[in-house]
Design a protein around this nucleic acid. Structure first.
Lengths: 334, 334
DNA sequence: CTGTTAGCGCCTTCAG
DNA sequence: CTGAAGGCGCTAACAG
């Protein structure tokens, strides 16, 4: 490996017998350049393997093609799905995501936002609508488009793309009540960090209350959601509450674990115990009995957000909310 | 939202009554600055909400804190796991991953590498050991550390971190042969794109051949791996080959789908049909009967690679191979 | 301990 | 259609 030898515009210009700015124009398809000149320059560029230095370009033109992306986690497939959507929409326009992961910690988010903003990104994409006040301050100052994903239950700084988790909780209660279930249990994960799971939980309780019902048993791990946690917790919950007829899980990972518990314990899904999840993951739908759940549109959320931030902001500074909704998947477990 | 008002070092310097370079030194904990000066400067920085412009910093110092990361896919949990490992090792040192996704296409990889290199990254992380010649050319020229992940079956440009997929295939054959299985089936996914799956497949066949055996039945989808594909394909395979006693899957996603097929068809795992996967995903281990499989160390691969690229390259330009190995998980399905 | 000088590589502006 | 001059915001190198 040789030492870093990178050519500059000047090198290319010299070899092509033109000025730097002409090379620059050719590479950016700017202004008018004679066809002959353009061809000569391009030939030299290819021959030298010249790669423009975007750092310099960004400094000179004060505009980068980077988009800061701050996600809470990469541990289950949900946020990678969102990131795929973001990438799908950004790639064709030549934008690059710069990713940070907060582990659901707002202090880490604050540092990441500072760090990402220091790269003068063209836009920022975050998760959720709650941030430290300094984070909000920095984002406001940055003067770029900002998308806040997943959640639309509060007012965004600029753009919110996602669904109402509160309503999802209510609709879950209504749906299951409508199917005749009356004795509800709940299996959850760490709600203090996953605020959207908390909101669904509240919605669920509200929906049950409207029907004159309440949770007869509930259990939650302090840990993040996982299939194994769902499996164990359902076992514990059923040990304490034998008469439940349906259990709602904080998400599909947990619910699939619950289904595994039932397989192992010989509990017939739906006939003996109904299960309901959240997210609509492939794994739940591939179960012998497809999981009854609520499908969030994660890829769509990412793609829509990325499309929206690339559009210039209008003069009127009104926040925009884009509801990507959700679908109830009937499945065969509830 | 106000227009982009970003303060510069000069603004801070003026307000603090010092020169730019002093502010710069304070912010970078460089050289010696009087404690009093330092405090005053920091107070002003916080008060103004000043965020340094790293684009300018990078241009001036010709060294960024960005690390280019090129991954083939984000569709299953494998590469997000790798990315988590990368992030875990980079974050404490203040490095930021810039992510690109190739969808297993070397042409796209080439474009991404060019685009990422234009940001003068401190290092590059790619997947696999096969790239277009122009990609290799650009990487060589860049003069930064380069890690190639997942695979160690060929010589890397600089650093390879991963495992031998060929040996994994052989060991799978030996292990299952040792357990007494003789009638092998295989369920795979698109091998033309996923070269590592192809290498495991070849290893499996070689291992079987050494034992005087061969695959009695096999089936592969042209699609990427998924639980649903595994479920369907196993059904098809068994319809054509009723006498198999073990089926090896291209990975755990597929194998879990296979397990689901068995649940639904009333086939007793291991007693009637053994299943074997690859990756050691949580989902497989949470099955009522934990999946027998081979654990790859994805998080470790990412973390190790990120640690290694942060170390300066020695004078001797010898490629380094770090074998993160794999473990056989006995499980209860084979 | 602090400041001055000169760029980093490119793009904007203004002339030809 | 092409070029020259100047500066983006920061930091290395060298004074004091």
């Amino acid at each position: 490996m040789t030492a870093r030898i990178s050519y500059t515009l000047a090198d290319v210009a010299t070899r092509a017998g033109v000025s730097e700015i002409t090379v620059s124009r050719v590479l950016r398809n700017k202004a008018s350049v004679a066809e002959k000149t353009r061809e000569r320059v391009l030939a030299v560029v290819r021959e030298m393997g010249y790669v423009p230095n975007r750092v310099a370009g960004t400094l000179a033109s004060s505009g980068s093609n980077l988009v800061g992306v701050v996600l809470p986690s990469l541990s289950n497939i949900v946020f990678p799905d969102v990131l795929r959507g973001i990438h799908a929409a950004l790639a064709p326009s030549g934008y690059q995501p710069v990713v940070g992961v907060t582990d659901y910690d707002q202090e880490i988010e604050e540092q990441l936002v500072a760090s990402l903003l220091s790269w003068q990104p063209a836009a920022m994409i975050l998760s959720g609508l709650h941030h430290t006040s300094y984070t909000v301050e920095m984002l406001r100052r940055a003067g770029v488009r900002i998308a806040e994903l997943m959640d639309i239950d509060a007012t965004p700084l600029d753009i919110a793309v996602g669904m109402s988790h509160h309503r999802a909780g209510i609709d879950t209660a209504r749906y299951l009540h409508g199917r005749g279930y009356r004795r509800f249990g709940y299996v959850g994960h760490d709600r203090s960090r996953d605020l959207r799971a908390a909101r669904r939980y509240e919605g669920l309780r509200q929906g049950l209350a409207e029907a004159g019902l309440s949770l007869e048993g509930e259990i939650a791990a302090a840990a993040p959601s996982s299939t194994s946690a769902g499996r164990e917790l359902l076992g514990q919950l059923l040990a304490a509450h034998r008469d439940l007829d349906v259990v709602v899980f904080s998400n599909d990972d947990m619910a699939v674990g619950g289904a595994f518990h039932c397989f192992a314990a010989g509990i017939r899904l739906r006939d003996e115990l109904a299960l309901f999840g959240f997210n609509g993951l492939d794994i739940g739908q591939a179960l012998p009995q497809p999981l009854s759940t609520l499908r969030s549109h994660r890829f769509l959320i990412g793609r829509t957000a990325a499309e929206m931030i690339l559009e210039p902001r209008g003069a009127d500074a009104r926040p925009v909310i884009r509801d990507t909704g959700y679908d109830i998947i009937e499945g065969e477990t509830a």
